Amino acid sequence: MKALTFPKSSRLLKPSDYGKVFDDVQLRVPHRHFLILATPNSLGHARIGLVFSKKNLKLAVQRNRVKRRVRETFRHEQEFPALDIVVLGRRGLTELDNTALNATLTELWARLRKKNRQLQKPTTSELSGTGKGTG
C-alpha cells in the first residue's frame, strides 16, 4: 500500500520547475474545468504542481478544497509515469462537489497515462528500421 503522505519529492517546488513544464509541454489533457500540462522528467517518479487563481476560484476555501482533492487523487494513483505535471484550474470548479471532482480527476489521470504511453510508443518506421537514406 502506498504511504499516506505527500512528500516534497512529489511536488514541483521552484518556479524553475514550473517553467520547465510550461516551456516544454509534451502532453496536454484539456477538460472543461482543468488543464493538465506535463513533460517527462529524469527522476523516475511523477511530481505535481498546482495553479489555481483567484480569478477562477474566488474564495480561499474553494481553492484549498480543490487543491486537496487534486493532491489526494494524485497520491492514490498507482504506477504513475515519470512526469512533471502542472494542473491548472478553470472557471466553474466551484460547481463541482467532491465526488464529481474525484471522478473527473481520476478520468484525467487515466487520459494522461494513455497519452504518455502513446508518446513513448515508437513509430512504425523506427521499429522496422526502414528510414530514408539507408540504402
Results as ranks from 00 to 15, higher is better:
R117E: 12
V29K: 03
V70M: 09
L27D: 00
R68G: 09
I48D: 04
T106R: 09
V61K: 10
L59C: 12
K55C: 03
V61P: 04
Q78S: 12
E107C: 07
Q26F: 00
S16P: 00
D97C: 10
R47T: 03
N41L: 07
L96Q: 14
F80P: 01
R90G: 08
L27S: 00
P7Y: 10
R71I: 04
K20R: 15
L4V: 01
R113F: 00
T134C: 06
F22S: 04
G133H: 05
F22I: 11
R71C: 06
F22Q: 01
K54Y: 11
L35W: 02
R28Q: 08
T94A: 15
G129I: 01
A60T: 13
G133Y: 02
L88P: 09
M1S: 08
R71P: 10
K8H: 13
L57V: 11
P81C: 04
V70G: 08
P30R: 04
A100W: 02
T73Q: 11
S125N: 01
L88K: 15
Y18G: 07
F6P: 13
R11I: 05
L93P: 08
F22L: 15
G44I: 11
S128D: 01
G49N: 10
G133Q: 04
E77N: 02
V29I: 14
I48M: 14
L112P: 03
L112A: 06
S42C: 09
P15C: 03
Q26K: 13
H45V: 10
H45G: 12
V61C: 10
R63S: 10
L101V: 12
S128W: 00
K114P: 00
V86W: 06
S53A: 13
H76S: 11
T39N: 02
R65T: 09
T104S: 13
M1D: 04
G19C: 02
A103T: 12
R68Q: 10
P122N: 06
Q62C: 06
A38L: 01
K20W: 04
W109A: 13
E107A: 15
T134N: 12
F52I: 10
K8L: 13
L93Y: 06
S125Y: 02
K121C: 01
V51I: 11
D24Y: 07
V25P: 02
I85V: 15
E107D: 14
Y18N: 07
L127T: 03
A82K: 03
L93G: 07
W109Q: 13
S42F: 06
L108M: 14
R11N: 05
W109N: 12
G49L: 10
Q78H: 10
L59K: 15
F52D: 05
K14M: 06
K114I: 00
R68C: 07
L108V: 07
E79N: 14
F34Y: 15
G49V: 09
G19T: 05
L27T: 01
R11A: 04
N64D: 09
D24R: 12
L50T: 14
S9K: 15
A100F: 02
P30C: 02
G92R: 11
E95L: 11
L101W: 07
R113V: 06
T106F: 00
K132R: 11
R11S: 03
M1A: 06
A100C: 10
K114F: 01
